[in-house]
């Protein structure tokens, strides 16, 4: 897959998709979106980049290995849940800041939890695709 056009366009598209994925994540509490779709869009961005520029390039662009991203996602989600415990409430109870922000709405631990979901889905998807994709390249 050595298409110059795809390689060029993919750089731009990947950036746009990543921004869009964050947008989906942030507005998910009030409009369609959220951690699952945001994470999938972000993963698609890296998959597209990998198809255009090869897996090693995609890996270096991801910066962290998928394993680390999965781990971070799970840890963030659990930390978001533990915040409830710190406040003396049951695990995963949502805590909220009173003042709303534009697009996102109010800030709270459920958003942090959704961020964890986002990273977990991103890491899972990229790990799966990279594992399946790289296998062939190395054997050739």
């Amino acid at each position: 897959m050595n298409s110059v056009i795809l390689a060029t366009v993919s750089r731009l598209l990947t950036g746009v998709l990543l921004v869009f994925s964050v947008f989906l994540l942030l507005r998910g509490h009030n409009l369609p979106g959220g951690g699952f779709s945001g994470g999938l869009v972000a993963a698609s961005a890296f998959v597209l980049f990998a198809f255009a520029n090869g897996f090693p390039a995609a890996r270096s662009m991801l910066f962290f290995t998928p394993h680390v991203i999965i781990g971070c996602g799970l840890v963030v989600a659990i930390v978001a849940g533990l915040a409830g415990n710190l406040a003396g409430l049951p695990f995963l109870t949502g805590l909220w800041d009173k003042t709303p922000l534009p697009v996102i709405g109010k800030l709270g631990t459920p958003l942090l939890f959704d961020l964890g979901v986002y990273f977990a889905v991103l890491g899972v998807t990229t790990l799966i695709v990279f594992s399946l994709g790289e296998d062939g390249e190395e054997e050739e």
């Binding site: 959220g34 951690g35 709405g105 939890f113």
Partner: peptide, 12 residues
């Protein structure tokens, strides 16, 4: 604090 009920179910 969420209007998207599906998302609220998932994350809260």
């Amino acid at each position: 604090n969420g209007r998207n009920v599906v998302n609220v179910i998932l994350v809260d």
